[in-house]
Amino acid sequence: APAHAFNKSAFQATSVQDAVKALGGSGALAESKDVSLQGPEIAENGAVVPLVGASPLPGIKLLAFMVEKNPNTLSAAFHVTDAVEANFSTRVKMAETSPVYAVAIAADGKAYFAKKEIKVTLGGCGG
């Protein structure tokens, strides 16, 4: 059995705040230069948006991707062990243009994030 079973309530959260709380984050949520989020400014396909999240901070226990305007905020959560770097990539669905977050939660429950606006557009036109 996996070390962490599927956290249903975290995936039902409809705000970054609630999702972080459900994932075990406590205290204030702080934007930090020590968390990075890479993704496109404009999504090529809202159904497949590549994200890379990372943090060099020591003691990070969990790294999660969240899309503020999706029906449910949390997309994926990765539990960090000593054997892997706090550096993960996956691809997520986005219903509309939204701020996207990489959230790193430390052992003490403190949560740090990086944020980026990713645009989902109808497309067309061009030079």
């Binding site: 070390a3 948006v49 959560a77 990765f78 892997v84 770097e85």
Partner: peptide, 24 residues
């Protein structure tokens, strides 16, 4: 030996992609 566990919701894309880095 388990090195990573992850939890995914329905917002992860169809035919999912995962990348991670092993330290050693």
């Amino acid at each position: 030996k388990t090195v990573l566990t992850a939890e995914w919701g329905p917002a992860v894309s169809r035919n999912p992609f995962l990348q991670f880095t092993l330290k050693n």
